[in-house]
């Protein structure tokens, strides 16, 4: 009998040791709300995150093997597409919108500028199959990966099954994206009382709280809602935003409120990337807001700022830059995985 107990004990330890070696604890930053992503349905593990990371950087996900997720979501720009108002995919095809920065996705319930995507797991399907982006089919991606040298092994390691499925592929990309948490900007350290704002930043923070925070709500710097911020309709695109999804006129010209975290590096701004500089964004809110039926109530009156206040506000926005996020090696191109493949 004792032997049975000892055996049981040992096997429990082995299971625990195996588990703790591979499990990944998702840390919720202090004073942040609970994430909305249901981790119970897709429990994080280091192997799955690494697999997702490989997939995120792999151009095999596009039809001509040239374009990866990272092509339009590069780390040093907070995972968006810098320099392009409208992001482009394979063969330089220009899309209809400016790619969004990827961070703190575990707190989002809908994705894309119009909320067309209802779950993070399903997000990757959209760019993979959009003809202007990666122009590929998930079925074909699965076939390509199954034939590769590394992926059956990586899927085996991550899911205990070397047969690649759409479900496993999507869930592992989700896992990598979920780890992209930005919560270490100067703003965050000030909130944690580890550092202090300059007088100018502090002044800017006050202006921000009065004028911007209702939509760009802390700590995510977005209220996760859809708003019309008074941009004039670009008639070459005729993009009515959320209305295309809900078919409701009330949603005309409404777009998802983007987070302002890492805004210094995630230019150009707005759904169509029409503004290159932060000063242009501020000018839009002081004098460019176009009145319409669906305009956000908070923008009915123009923002009034003196030239000093404009500078203060921008100084505050720059405190949202998180270098530990932008240069985190855990998020970068997974050299070791891809180089092992070439050696084989």
């Amino acid at each position: 009998m004792k032997k049975v107990f000892i055996l049981l004990l040992i096997s429990t330890f082995i299971i625990l040791a195996f588990k703790s070696g591979n499990e990944y604890t998702f840390a919720i930053p202090i004073n942040w709300p609970k994430p909305t992503y249901d981790f119970a349905k897709n429990p994080l593990s280091i192997d799955k995150i690494q697999l997702g990371r490989a997939l995120f950087y792999d151009p095999q996900l596009s039809s001509d093997n040239t374009t990866s997720c990272s092509s339009c979501h590069s780390q040093f720009t907070a995972f968006t597409h810098v320099d392009h108002a409208l992001s482009h995919g394979i063969k330089d095809r220009i899309g209809k919108r400016n790619s969004l920065a990827l961070m703190n996705l575990a707190w989002h319930q809908s994705f894309m500028w119009d909320g067309a995507i209802n779950h993070l797991d399903m997000q990757s399907l959209a760019p993979i199959s959009n003809p202007d982006e990666m122009d590929e089919k998930i079925e074909h991606v699965v076939t390509k990966l199954q034939k590769s040298k590394i992926y059956p092994l990586l899927f085996q390691k991550a899911f205990g099954d070397s047969t690649i499925t759409g479900e496993h592929l999507l869930k592992s990309i989700s896992q990598f994206m979920l780890t992209l948490v930005s919560s270490n900007s100067k703003y965050d350290s000030v909130m944690r009382k580890e550092s202090v704002f300059t007088a100018q930043e502090n002044q800017g923070y006050k202006l921000f709280k009065t004028n911007c925070a209702e939509c760009h709500t802390e700590p995510l710097f977005t209220n996760l809602k859809f708003e019309n911020n008074g941009l004039t309709l670009d008639t070459t695109l005729n993009d009515t935003g959320r209305m295309k999804i809900t078919h409701n006129k009330k949603d005309s010209l409404r777009f998802k409120v983007p987070s302002l975290r890492n805004i210094e590096f995630s230019y150009p701004y707005m759904h169509d990337g029409r503004f290159k500089k932060l000063s242009e964004v501020v000018t839009h809110y002081t004098s460019g807001v176009q009145k319409s039926n669906t305009l956000s109530k908070k923008l009915e009156k123009n923002l009034v700022l003196s030239s000093n206040e404009r500078v203060d506000l921008i100084a505050f926005l720059l405190t949202l830059t998180d270098r530990t996020f932008l240069f985190n090696k855990d998020y970068s191109f997974p050299r070791t995985i891809f180089f092992t493949e070439k050696k084989e």
Partner: peptide
């Protein structure tokens, strides 16, 4: 509720990608 396997796997050609 996200990704599922089996007959619900999005590789079955019965899932919209541009709008979930």
């Amino acid at each position: 509720s996200g990704a599922y396997g089996g007959d619900l796997d999005p590789t079955k050609g019965m899932y919209w990608t541009w709008q979930n």
